[in-house]
């Protein structure tokens, strides 16, 4: 499965919002956090994360602010901050994902049972 196909199966908006619920982060940092916390399973390109964040900014779920680089040649970074409208959206996404996950798990259980009976 290529990266784009895998990305479609990950609730990336929800994961980004959950990360930002903890603290403000910049895009690259979020990419690394997603990778590290999932032990490398969620290895999503920066471009995908960046445009997901852009979409969330347009939805006013998050806002941005620039932080100048610490060292002389370091570029400024765009940090993302969670905004109040994100909360109900996160709950909604969480509910959808939980429901889908529960449905898939139940399906797997029934499928396993039927296979063992056969």
């Amino acid at each position: 499965m290529n990266s784009a196909e895998f990305t479609k199966k990950v609730p990336l908006e929800l994961l980004c919002l959950l990360l930002l619920e903890e603290r403000d982060m910049y895009g690259y940092e979020m990419m690394l956090e997603l990778r590290n916390r999932s032990e490398g399973i969620i290895d999503i390109s920066l471009a995908t994360i960046y445009f997901t964040l852009k979409r969330l900014v347009e939805m006013k779920c998050i806002s941005t602010y620039d932080v100048p680089g610490g060292r002389a040649n370091e570029r400024s970074r765009q940090y993302y901050h969670l905004e109040p409208p994100a909360k109900p959206y996160m709950s909604e996404l969480q509910a959808i994902y939980d429901r889908a996950l529960r449905g898939v798990r139940l399906f797997f259980e029934v499928h396993e049972k039927m296979e063992s009976d056969a």
Binding site: S3, A4, Y28, M31, S45, L46, A47, T48
Partner: peptide
């Protein structure tokens, strides 16, 4: 490998 290919973008 980090950002994705231009096609991904």
């Amino acid at each position: 490998s980090i950002v994705g290919t231009p096609a991904d973008v």
